[in-house]
Design a protein around this nucleic acid. Structure first.
Length: 393
DNA sequence: CCTCCACTGGAAACCTAGGCTC
DNA sequence: GAGCCTAGGTTTCCAGTGGAGG
């Protein structure tokens, strides 16, 4: 804070010299070629190619852990496809179900991308689906829908939408809707209706994690585009690849890491992005992830998390509930039932903010063993920014 | 081997906010 | 504006259960 404004600007001016094209490291950036995914690219292209003859491609399922290139490959192929024959009415909306939030909002995004104007709430799901099909039909749209985090959708809302969509072929005389489903979870198929599964999984493709070697090559390539020459030494790339590689070969994380490290170096006025920058970036990436997750949490979930943070040694559902009830009362918030709190604990577990494993303690009953997975001080700092909590504290 | 605790988690009913129709 | 619709969050109800202590 005490930094003299001139020196800040001086550093920024010097630092700016590090980046050539920072966009090459942004999450939306799709490179001209995706190394180590040639096989998947041609497989996806093969499946989708019939769209160029106005016939409906098979539905397609892509599996793989986060950062294995599923999204990049599908976006890459779809953009090529659109570029190939712009005269055809090919639409390739991309929707992430988890980011959209609910079943309805996922549909809302799909509908919007097809040019429909739909209220964000109030309509029946069946009504939105009807409108989507009717616009496909009336304007002869050829739609290939990339539906990301499809496993989230199924888990939380069932396969109703997919059931409707996979029957699209039977419902439209002109135009079509094909689905490219993208999933992080290989097991989600188990809960699918067999009819949906056989239709959606007409074609399947698995994305293996990148090896550390591959990550290194990818990073080197991106770094060459993003940074000036000599700014990122080989050892930095190696460390970055190693860090991301230990997290199941997540390329997105590796690229994020490099970008943030570059920003750190820039801010500090360094001439090079060194190992220390990468380590700092690694902390920041983790902090940002937690921060974002915490901020977007509903009030009740925050109160529950705050309660859990009081038990550093770990705790259980009953204990959390009594603590939560007291805290909620003091804050003046509504007090939820234990059933609901139990459900929220499961949600927080899914988000990776707490660990909530069901354990049996014999005669002393069953409960969830609950442990906070994020640093207490981070949690308290971010949650105390919520006005309805601060006011009471 | 049986009991019985402290919950879990499914199912259904209820509530609220918002759109639609007339 | 009244009356009807639905989605999503919550409550109510409750059968089910893993395993330590008996």
């Amino acid at each position: 804070m005490s930094d003299d404004i001139d020196s800040i600007f001086q550093r920024a001016k010097r630092g700016k010299a590090l980046f050539l094209d920072r966009k090459a490291l942004s999450p939306e950036y799709i490179p001209d070629h995706l190394p180590f995914r040639e096989q998947q690219i041609s497989a996806v292209a093969e499946v989708l190619a019939p769209a160029l003859h106005m016939s409906k491609p098979s539905n397609l399922l892509l599996y793989g852990k986060t950062g294995t290139g599923k999204t990049a490959v599908s976006r890459y192929v779809l953009s090529k496809l659109m570029a190939e024959e712009p005269s055809l009415n090919i639409f390739t909306p991309y929707v992430n179900a988890r980011i959209a939030g609910t079943e309805y909002l996922t549909l809302w995004e799909i509908a919007s991308s097809l040019g429909l104007t739909i209220p964000k709430t109030g309509l029946a799901i069946a009504e939105v689906i009807k409108q989507i099909f009717s616009v496909i039909q009336s304007q002869s749209l050829n739609v290939i829908l990339a539906l990301d985090e499809i496993d989230y959708l199924i888990h939380s809302y069932g396969d109703n939408i997919l059931y409707q969509f996979t029957r699209a072929g039977e419902r439209t005389a002109t135009g079509f809707l094909s689905i490219v489903g993208i999933s992080n979870d290989l097991k989600f198929k188990e809960v699918l209706d067999p009819r949906v599964l056989s239709s959606l999984g007409e074609e399947e493709l698995v994305f293996p994690p990148y090896t550390v070697e591959e990550l290194r090559a990818i990073l080197a390539e991106r770094a060459a585009v993003a940074f000036k020459q000599g700014v990122v030494p080989q050892s930095t790339v190696n460390l970055c690849a190693a860090l991301a590689g230990s997290e199941h070969g997540d390329a997105r994380r590796a690229v994020d890491l490099l970008r943030i490290a570059g920003e750190v170096a820039e801010r500090e006025g360094f001439q090079r992005v060194d190992d220390a920058c990468i380590r700092k970036a690694s902390e920041k990436v983790e902090y940002d992830r937690v921060e974002e997750a915490l901020r977007s949490l509903p009030l009740q979930n925050k109160i529950i998390l705050l309660t859990i943070s009081k038990f550093q040694q770990g705790t259980n559902t009953g204990e959390v509930y009594t603590g939560y009830a007291t805290l909620a009362k003091r804050i003046g918030a509504e007090i939820l039932t234990q059933r609901r709190v139990s459900g929220i604990l499961a949600e927080l577990d899914l988000l990776g903010l707490v660990e909530a494993a069901v354990v049996s303690k014999g005669r002393r009953g069953r409960t969830k063993r609950i442990r906070l997975l994020i640093p207490t001080d981070t949690l308290e700092k971010i949650i105390s920014e919520d006005p309805s909590i601060t006011a009471a504290a």
